[in-house]
Each structure stands twice: as C-alpha cells, then as structure tokens.
Design a binder for these strands. Structure first.
Length: 284
DNA sequence: GTTTAATGGGTAT
DNA sequence: TACCCCTTAAACT
C-alpha cells in the first residue's frame, strides 16, 4: 500500500470499499481478531458470505449474508490493508490487528479503527441518516448539495468548521477543507449564514471534481497543475502515478503562498489545524 | 527510551 | 474547552 494509506478522508474509504468488494464479494472469509478486541463480532460473521462492501463519507460497511453488517470507521489513525497471497492461511500478524479477513488468496488486516462493530440494517440506516451528502456520489438521491446548504445557511459557525461536520457533508476532512477553501479563495472564518449560495455551490462542485482524483491516485490532489495532469490521464484511460503530494496550504505554515507569496498561516479550528493564506483568502 | 503528531470523532464539563 | 480512545512512526532526549 502507498504511504498515503493513512489518509482517512472520503476518497480513502471509497477506494477501500471498492478494493474489499473486489477481493471478498461472493466469498466467505474466515474473520478473526488476532488482537482479541473484536473476537465476538468476528465470530458472528466468520464463514458467512460477503454480499457487498460500500462506503459513505468516512464510514465503511461490509454486508454479510444474514443481515449482519460490519461497520468500520478508521478514525484518525486506522488502516485497512489488503494483501493478495497464495499462502493466506499463514500470513503472519504484524502489530495490533483488530480484524482480519482471510480467504485462500486474500488477507485484509484492520488496525487502529475508531469503530469496528457488527450491526443490523436498522443501525446502518441510522448511521447513514446522520450523514450529509457525499461529493463522491453526486448522483445519489442522498447527495443533494442543497441539503448541506440548508445547514450551512442557518449556522453562524465558520465555513471551515462546517466543512468538517459530517452532518453537513460526508467525507471531507482536514486536508480537503483547507485546500478547497484556498482553491476558491474563501475566507475560512466566514460564517455559514454570511456565505453566498453560489460560493457553496462552487465548493461542492470543486469537491465533486477533486475527490475522484484522490480515489484514482490514493493521494489528495489539489494543486492545479497536478489536478489537470491527473484528470487528463484519467480521461485517456492511462495509468496515473504520482510520487509527490503537493498542497497549497496544508502543512505549509510559515512558507510562502504559491500565489501571492504571503506566509501561510495556521490555527486550530474545529479541533484541528486549519491552514490558509490570510491575503488570498481575505474575501469570499 | 520517551514524546509527539497524524488526513476523526464521541463524551463529559 | 478538555479529555478520551484507537496505532504507528518520526522526532526527540
């Protein structure tokens, strides 16, 4: 797995669900908890058929036969790696593996999740009901950006905080929020109820365009040159390989803004480090 | 060897 | 606002 495996924003979960679905759909893996903390849940689904693996925002759902769904949230530090191997039964356990799926040819190991539970379909409805639209599924009925706008419009919280609220929209995390606000030159501290609707629509459209590039590259691609390059390669059906991840503002505090040269600033907003250019993002 | 930071989020105060 | 959980690896001493 690429070193950006630790990137649990929506694009990571989307790609993970896709890969788990490819590796395990239609199989009945042995599910275990080498670490022990998930032993009971693992026993509930072990040996039953995987019907589908999907995601919504940062939530991963693996549906097993018998109305049992494995609900996983990676949190800040979780990882779920998939290995293809001919000796799956003998794959050594490395580190704290909360949950392992094993078939004859695949092993998937989950480490450090915030949530790992077996739940009912009703619980899944409740989980999904709490989440806002997901820009990775713009055509889904749940993904009407006006649902997010309604919440934004009636909140006096800064837009940088609202973008992190999964009830407003699902899947955006600390990197995408800083980067998308810079890309649109939006002041991160502008209250939701002072934001223009067209500004919100532009943020949404930008996320709809950006997140698939993250899925394709396993990296958060936001800088225009890279965005153009990756979009072109995807369109041409060519393999996309990126070695360096660049950003406009994320983790660039004290460095010169790529556009105006001002020093990039940082401040904790919604419990996490926000990065922005105080000059480029004065208005908006 | 110990401390810290990391792209999250729930709960208590 | 503070504190808690999850795990790993890099950055400290």
């Amino acid at each position: 797995m690429a070193d950006d495996g630790h990137m649990p924003e929506g694009h990571t979960l989307y790609a993970l669900a896709r890969d788990l679905d490819t590796a395990f759909r239609g199989t009945s893996p042995v599910v275990s908890s080498p670490q022990g903390k998930f032993a009971e849940g693992a026993a509930l689904v072990s040996g039953t058929e995987v019907l589908e693996a999907t995601s919504w925002g940062k939530h991963l759902l693996v549906e097993f036969a018998g109305d049992r769904i494995l609900w996983v949230h990676l949190g800040l530090i979780g990882t779920f790696t998939i290995d293809t191997t001919s000796y799956a039964g003998e794959m050594p356990v490395v580190g704290q593996v909360r949950c392992r799926f094993a078939t004859d040819d695949h092993v998937a190991d989950l480490r450090g999740p915030m949530v790992c539970d077996v739940v009912t379909p009703e619980k899944v409805d409740e989980i999904l009901g709490r989440l806002g639209p997901d820009p990775l599924r713009p055509h889904d009925v749940r993904s009407d950006p006006d649902l997010a706008w309604k919440r934004i419009q009636r909140s006096s919280k800064p837009i940088a905080e609202l973008l992190m609220d999964q009830a407003v929209l699902a899947g955006v995390g600390n990197v995408y929020r800083s980067e998308v606000l810079f890309r649109l030159r939006v002041n991160p501290f502008r209250p939701g109820d002072k934001l223009q609707r067209k500004t919100w629509r532009a943020i949404w459209e930008d996320l709809v365009a950006l997140l698939p590039l993250g899925v394709a590259t396993s990296k958060i691609v936001t800088v225009h040159e890279q965005v153009d390059e990756v979009a072109r390669l995807l369109e041409e059906g060519e393999e996309v390989r990126l070695t360096e991840r660049e950003s406009y503002v994320y983790k660039r505090q004290g460095e010169a803004c790529h556009v105006c040269g001002s020093r990039i600033r940082t401040q904790v907003v919604a419990g996490r480090n926000l990065f922005w250019c105080g000059n480029c993002q004065r208005r908006g």
